[in-house]
Structure formats: C-alpha cells, structure tokens
Simulated scan of single mutants.
Amino acid sequence: MLENKFSTITTDRLLLREIVDSDLENIYNGLSNPKITQYYGVSYNSLEATKEQMTWFADKKQLWWAICDINTKVFYGAGGLNDIDDQTKIAEIGLWLLPDFWGKGIMKEVLPLICNYGFKHLLLNRIEGFVESNNKNCKRAMAKLDFKLEKTVPDFEIKNGKPISIDIYTKTN
C-alpha cells in the first residue's frame, strides 16, 4: 500500500485539512443528521459510536479531509477518497456537508480538488462515485463536474430494510 501522505489543500475561501480527534463532535453532528444520512451510507446515534468513523478515517485505504472556512476555520463537512486501491489505481469519492452550508457552491469547489489530488498525488486512473439513484442533487452535481454515468445497478444494497439502486459515476485521468 502506498503511504498516503496527507496534504492540506486551500482555495481563496476553503481549507481542506486532516480530520483530527477534535473533529469528533463535528463528524457526529453531520453523521447523525437525517438530512445528511438520508443518502449517506452510515449514521451514528452517539459521540461514542462516531469514534468508529474516526477510526475509519485513519485507515490508510481512506484519505478524507475536514472542509472548513479558510478564515474562521468553521467546519463545513468532510470529503475524500475511500477504498484507495494501489493495484488497480481506483478509489471512490465521497463528500457530505452540514445542511447550513448546502447551496453555496462548496461541493462544486471541493470535488475537483479531491479528484486532482487523487490523480496527481495518488496516481489514480479512475475515481468512482456511488450515488443512490433517487439522490437528484448529487446526481446533478456529479454530471456538472464531468463525472460520467457508467451504469445503474438495481437493488445494489439494502438500506433501512429496503433495496436501493445505485448510479455509478466515473471520472478517469
């Protein structure tokens, strides 16, 4: 496994930095919020349970950033690459934002930064986005950011006791 050297990324308004232990409450606030977890793969009902997510972030197969305001350091959400495979040079992209920061162009700004990092620093050939088929906002964002809809997989997984379909979006280097 390549050692994923963590780099801070900045723009005129955003700071993408390493997720640290002191982010536990911010991560909990996001991943316990029904507006976020409606289309997200995990949710937590306590700070203690959220420590599992912090352990996941620290795994070498993941590379996730805390997304913050460059000046105030206010936490907006998290984004990064999952299941980084050094053999196939493929990873999955993910991102979530606290609802107060929706509709402010943050996703549109952050996703290309994460992709560029994956292609240039991790030497990925392909980045995949797995989007629930009924998540219209995310699907629009993926299309605007030059991800191509590769296929829809019906009944891909069970969520809340019901099968859900997943649209697989891809971007190649």
Rank of each mutant, 00 (worst) to 15 (best):
F6V: 08
F6N: 07
S7R: 08
D12I: 03
L14A: 14
L15M: 07
L16P: 08
E18H: 08
E18C: 14
I19P: 04
D23K: 04
L24Y: 01
I27E: 08
Y28N: 03
N29M: 10
S32D: 05
K35D: 10
K35G: 00
K35Y: 04
I36S: 06
I36Y: 05
Y39E: 07
Y40L: 12
Y44A: 02
L47K: 02
E48L: 06
K51F: 03
E52G: 03
M54Q: 03
A58V: 07
K60Y: 09
K60M: 10
K61S: 12
K61H: 03
W64P: 02
W65A: 12
C68M: 12
D69G: 07
D69P: 12
I70N: 15
K73E: 13
F75W: 08
Y76V: 09
Y76C: 07
G79Y: 02
G79F: 07
G80L: 14
L81A: 07
I84D: 04
D85M: 13
Q87W: 00
T88C: 11
K89T: 12
I90G: 03
A91V: 09
E92D: 05
L98V: 06
P99K: 14
P99E: 10
D100Q: 14
D100H: 08
D100S: 08
W102Q: 00
G103N: 14
G103F: 01
G105P: 06
G105L: 13
M107C: 06
L113C: 08
C115D: 02
N116Q: 13
F119L: 14
F119A: 09
K120G: 08
K120E: 15
H121N: 08
H121E: 14
L122F: 10
L122A: 09
L122V: 05
L124M: 11
R126I: 04
I127A: 11
F130L: 04
F130P: 00
F130R: 11
V131M: 05
V131R: 06
V131I: 05
S133E: 11
N137S: 15
R140K: 05
K144W: 03
F147P: 03
K148G: 02
K151Y: 11
V153D: 00
P154K: 15
P154F: 03
D155S: 15
F156T: 01
F156V: 06
F156W: 15
E157L: 12
K159F: 07
K159D: 02
I164S: 00
S165A: 08
I166W: 09
D167I: 07
T170N: 02
K171L: 12
N173C: 11
N173S: 12
